[in-house]
């Protein structure tokens, strides 16, 4: 059994097979990592500059040492917790392709989660969009799915290989339609 077959998600039907689990492209999280590194280095740089250029003018006593230590600690705690929140916001956005449907799980911040699904047989149109130089080099973009359900348009944002995902969806859609047609043809009256 492949690794993907070992995955189970809440609400998964019995005998429902997962084909793909899609997350946003890693580059979307890379900017948060660079931002964290920059913010983490900032107090160190400031303290180094103070130590080099302002030693004669600024000699911290115990009170100011405590103030600086608590201030820097607070700073690092909060940039760290917000970085963790950004990671969860990135990682908990998931699109799952099964042999029956497409499930979209989007984490839009703390305590705001949107789960929607569309049956594969109801898909009418699939479009992939790659826009910009970065997106072209790193092969990421959007896949738009037009369906006949109440959720008219699914959008997979910032996903890797959107064209390949679109082709996979269409292949799964064709298989689902064939299975559905065979079922209706052979169903006893």
């Amino acid at each position: 059994m492949s690794n993907i077959q070992k995955i189970h998600f809440p609400g998964q039907h019995h005998n429902e097979r997962i084909f793909l689990v899609i997350r946003r492209h890693w580059l979307m999280f890379a900017k948060h990592v660079f931002w964290l590194l920059f913010m983490a280095a900032l107090p160190i740089l400031i303290l180094l500059l103070i130590n080099i250029f302002l030693t004669d003018f600024f000699v911290p006593d115990d009170f100011f040492t405590i103030l600086i230590v608590c201030g820097v600690s607070t700073y690092y705690l909060f940039i760290w917790v917000f970085f963790f929140r950004d990671f969860l916001d990135f990682y908990l956005d998931v699109w799952i392709l099964t042999d029956e449907r497409i499930v979209s799980i989007e984490q839009l911040g703390l305590f705001h989660r949107v789960v929607s699904e569309v049956n594969l047989t109801k898909i009418q149109d699939v479009t992939s969009i790659v826009r910009g130089a970065f997106a072209t080099f790193f092969n990421y973009g959007e896949t738009h799915i037009q369906s006949a359900g109440s959720e008219k348009r699914f959008i997979f944002r910032q996903i890797p290989d959107p064209n390949g995902i679109a082709r996979t969806i269409l292949t799964l859609h064709d298989s689902a339609r064939q299975s559905s047609d065979q079922y209706h043809e052979t169903r006893p009256l």
């Binding site: 995955i7 998600f9 963790f84 969860l88 908990l92 984490q107 703390l110």
Partner: peptide
């Protein structure tokens, strides 16, 4: 944040 990670980070 940890609550969200444990509850929804299932895969």
């Amino acid at each position: 944040n940890i609550y969200h990670a444990i509850r929804f980070g299932i895969f």
